[in-house]
Design a binder for these strands. Structure first.
Length: 874
RNA sequence: GGGGAUUUAGCUCAGUUGGCUAGAGCGUACGAUUCACAUUCGUAAGGUCACAGGUUCAAGCCCUGUAAUCCCCACCA
């Protein structure tokens, strides 16, 4: 006996994973790269494979640990992967690791600061190689954790986001875009973090509601409201709404404003952007530090005066305030203005949405910077047309609409970051102004060189790096080694599974880039998962202290328990609560399955000892037909559920079938009638069907049983079992009889009733033939033919004569319960009759429903008459 | 301002093209114990399906409206 009394995941998981990995079963059956140089470029092996299944892992941070969201990701993706592997597809689950540009940079910079250094002491190449070493030191944790979660990915094909082929591909795309005129260098307002000294894309900015004092200040002839008095030094106009009657006379005039550094003059402009209702309907325009003002400045050709520098301090235009931080400057300016009587009033209850750096919380300043931009119009339009053409199926479906809506309003994408940790932008700027015929900027891949020479002209490297999303948007392309030259059977991916929170940042960009580079959508399906919330439905966060570490749960309950637990009750795209209880339920299922296998093996061993096993199986009684039917139903439902990404339903179905049907009814019946071959094949079917969700316990059992060669992980998905449907349906009668006996026994006064009273049947062939089974399942001591006039308590069964052999006194005590039962059945009968009285129902409802209703009436009537009969006897 | 969702048992959630008596897990109550499993077995209680209308023979599901909760985008100088 290889089965211990309970399943101990810790004893099996590591060994099983190592055995899988060593055997190479995680690699796709079909070569991933065409090796033959046939005329059409297609590998011979490609031709023979019917189906491929490819899925990529959203790359976890290379130097981080996995969090609960990764746990969910792996549970989802690996279940899909294992299912398709069992289905016989050439399955390729490609793992990845993310250099996580800014995230990692922030961690590294913090380390640097702890040691009393700053990034500005080193050049980019030096910093890059230092971070590289830093990441290399930290790396590996997450890979071990992925293994612990059971991720059946092809480790040999792991893609790191800074791998050479990734950089190559990114440069190729960039070059193509540059040549296509889609890349431009622009001096525009960008979101800028003065702590990290880098620009951000719009999606990286975190807006928070804050109370910001709203100052009503005297501004020439006007009073205007502003939250940013310190930017006054950069004001180059003052604006009113062209329809505002209050200010008509001023439009176009130049006014003199009393300032803290003395008077200055600005022009009054009229612009639709001004909301007449807000404040006084007058706005000061600071084009260098506000997005709206910038646009107004473009419209009216205003001067741009920079007030805040890259370090977050006021520039020399602030005069005696220069050198102060923004915050200090604001206070000082307000104080001075108060002194001068320029502050009319202050609204301290004004709530403003303030942009923050999503990493350090520093207030983001709109800053005028030269950056590389992608003109996204064409990319977005192409993506929209393919989306509208339904080339990608979304789960949940509504995300497609959301995505299209986003793409329609997408602004040009700033891809420059001023941090060293990332892929260098392959652009060089002309250093020699005298070479007027040469272009100012040229593309070149030699980013390892600080200077290059071309046509005798010297060019200097741009020191910026790419936004990580620019390279990440190539993920399906680079992971599958897609090339222009060869047909790639793994591209497009079958599915992209990732978090709903990065629909815009990542999914949208993968679609645009996939189409731009390959002409095809990069994946056929998108499955988006929501956030994993804590048991109270609150977001997990370090500060709240409610973070659940997936590895703790894996250690405590096992990998399978975690996987089943986190999939429980989860549906696409929704933020949903998660608690240890669901993992406990998963652990219990694993243990149940273990003990089921333990019992089945002991029965089969006994059969083999007696030489009784035979193959193929036959079904010899109705319980056996029934379980075949139930398993078939279960497996086809699981197939449909997985193919439609209904993970919770799939695990739920398996849970019910294994526990409530296989263990509670079939195995109990097999204690009476043993069918060794059928026990084997049914157990194997259930093990295989559960394997995608619980890979370790099913493999551990499979190996312990050792009935079938090889791993369960690479066996064949179960085929349907043969059975007699009529016999299977008959078994439902047995289940009803047993349930009714149990219910009645439990409702009788006293305890241990099942041991006290036997069953009596009255010439009923179904009961007679299955009396041993009924006796065993209901746990009564005896079951006999009545042989005489009825006695005891009649069970509430419409089509069977069955009595509990209880004394007269107990029957009398049961009288009230019996009356209640008759009334309850009567109510049900009335409801059915009412339906039949409605001529519209009889005419319009489908015939089979009407028939069912009629049958129901007959059945209830029979039941009532039997129960009434009993009542009269009492 | 624009968009997307959610609301079903004490809790977390299912409920696929409308179909009869709305399900599960956990929790609760009562009972069981050598014989695979107390990580077990049996039984039960617990629901005006957010609210109001409408369509239909029939509505948790479809339509209209209301309320509450949540998320995303834009944005308030």
């Amino acid at each position: 006996m290889k089965f211990s009394k309970s399943y101990e995941p810790g004893e099996y998981e590591a060994d099983i994973y190592a055995a899988w990995e060593a055997s190479g079963i995680f690699n796709p059956k079909l070569a991933t790269k065409p090796t033959d140089n046939n005329s059409d470029g297609i590998d011979d092996r490609t031709r023979n494979i019917e189906k491929t299944y490819s899925i990529v892992m959203p790359p976890p941070n290379a130097n981080g640990n996995l969090h609960i969201g990764h746990g969910l990701t792996i549970a989802l993706e690996d279940s899909l992967t294992r299912y398709h592997r069992l289905k016989g597809d050439s399955t390729w689950y490609i793992p990845g690791a993310d250099h996580a540009g800014f995230e990692t940079w922030v961690v590294y910079e913090r380390e640097l600061e702890k040691k009393g250094h700053t990034r500005f002491e080193y050049d980019r190449d030096e910093l890059y190689s230092r971070v590289w070493d830093f990441v290399a030191d930290q790396r590996g944790n997450m890979e071990l954790q992925l293994r612990a979660l059971g991720a059946s990915c092809a480790w040999d094909d792991l893609t790191f986001t800074l791998d050479e082929n990734v950089i190559d591909r990114v440069y190729t795309t960039f070059e193509k875009m540059w040549n296509d005129g889609m890349i431009y260098r622009g001096k525009k307002l960008v979101n800028y973090c003065t702590k990290h000294r880098t620009a951000f894309a719009d999606i990286e900015v975190d807006y928070k509601e804050e109370k910001t004092p709203l100052y009503y200040i005297k501004y020439g002839p006007f009073t205007l409201a502003t939250t940013r008095p310190e930017t006054k030094f950069g004001d180059t106009a003052v604006a009113v709404n062209p329809n505002d009657e209050r200010y008509q006379e001023w439009i176009g005039k130049t006014i003199t404003v009393e300032g803290v550094n003395g008077p200055f003059q600005v022009e009054v402009i009229a612009d639709e952007m001004v909301d007449m209702e807000f404040g006084t309907g007058v706005v000061k325009i600071t084009p260098a530090h506000d997005f709206n003002d910038w646009e107004a400045g473009q419209r009216h050709n205003l001067r741009v005066v920079q007030v805040i520098d890259e370090t977050g301090h006021l520039t020399e235009v602030a005069g005696r305030f220069a050198g102060m931080t923004v915050e200090e400057g604001r206070k000082a300016v307000v104080k001075e203005m108060e002194k001068m009587g320029l502050i009319i009033k202050v609204d301290n209850n004004y709530v403003n949405k303030v942009p923050h750096c999503y990493k350090c919380g520093t207030v983001i300043e709109p800053m005028l910077k030269e950056q590389w931009f992608i003109d996204v119009k064409k990319l977005a339009d192409v993506a929209i047309s393919h989306l509208e053409n339904n080339e990608i199926n979304f789960h949940p479906t509504n995300k497609k609409t959301v995505l299209i809506n986003y793409l329609k309003n997408l602004k040009d994408w700033n891809i420059s970051r001023q941090i060293p940790w990332g892929i260098a932008i392959p652009m060089f700027k002309k250093a020699d102004d005298s070479a007027t015929d040469e272009p100012d900027w040229i593309f070149d891949r030699r980013t390892n060189l600080k200077e290059i020479e071309k046509a005798g002209v010297k060019y200097v490297r741009d020191e910026d790096t790419f936004d990580t999303w620019f390279s990440s948007s190539h993920w399906p392309i680079v992971c599958t080694d897609w090339t222009e030259e060869n047909f790639n059977p793994y591209y497009p991916l079958n599915v992209m599974e990732t978090g709903a929170d990065i629909l815009f940042a990542w999914v949208a960009r993968m679609i645009m880039m996939g189409l731009y580079v390959t002409g095809e959508v990069p994946f056929k399906d998108v499955y988006l998962h929501g956030l994993v919330l804590d048991a109270q439905g609150k977001k997990m966060s370090k500060s709240k202290g409610n973070v659940i570490n997936p590895m703790d749960l894996v250690t405590k309950y096992g990998s399978d328990a975690f996987r089943i637990g986190i999939l429980k009750g989860r549906s696409a795209g929704m933020n949903q609560a998660f608690s240890e209880n669901s993992v406990i339920a998963g652990r219990n299922l694993c243990n149940k399955l273990w003990n089921i296998s333990r019992l089945v093996q002991s029965i089969v061993d006994e059969g083999e000892f007696m030489g009784a096993t035979s193959s193929p199986y036959t079904t010899d009684n109705m319980g056996e037909d029934w379980i075949c039917r139930e398993i078939n139903d279960c497996i086809s439902k699981v197939e449909a559920d997985i193919e439609n990404y209904r993970f919770a339903e799939a695990t739920e179905t398996l849970y019910q079938t294994i526990w409530d049907k296989y263990a509670d009814w079939f195995l109990e019946s097999q204690k009476i009638y043993k069918n060794y071959s059928l026990l084997k094949i049914t157990l194997e079917s259930l093990l295989i069907a559960l394997h995608p969700f619980a890979p370790f316990v099913t493999e551990a059992i499979w190996q312990n049983l050792s009935w079938t060669e090889g791993f369960i992980a690479t066996t064949n998905w179960p085929s349907s079992l043969k059975f007699d449907p009529i016999s299977a349906e008959e078994f439902e009668n047995i289940r009803n009889i047993v349930s009714e006996a149990r219910t009645t026994l439990a409702s009788l006064p006293g305890t241990n009733n099942a041991k006290k009273y036997g069953l009596l049947y009255d010439n009923d062939s179904l009961i007679e033939e299955n009396q041993l089974l009924i006796k065993a399942l209901s746990k009564v001591p005896t079951i006999n033919n009545l042989n005489g006039s009825p006695r005891g308590l009649r069970l509430a069964l419409a089509n069977h004569e069955l009595y509990l052999d209880v004394p007269e006194k107990v029957v009398k005590d049961y009288k009230d319960a019996l009356t209640d039962k008759i009334l309850a059945v009567g109510r049900e009968l009335d409801a059915l009759n009412a339906r039949l009285m409605n001529p519209n129902y009889v005419d319009k409802a489908p015939a089979h429903l009407v028939k069912e209703t009629r049958d129901g009436v007959k059945e209830k009537e029979a039941l009532i008459s039997r129960l009434k009969n009993q009542l009269e006897l009492i």
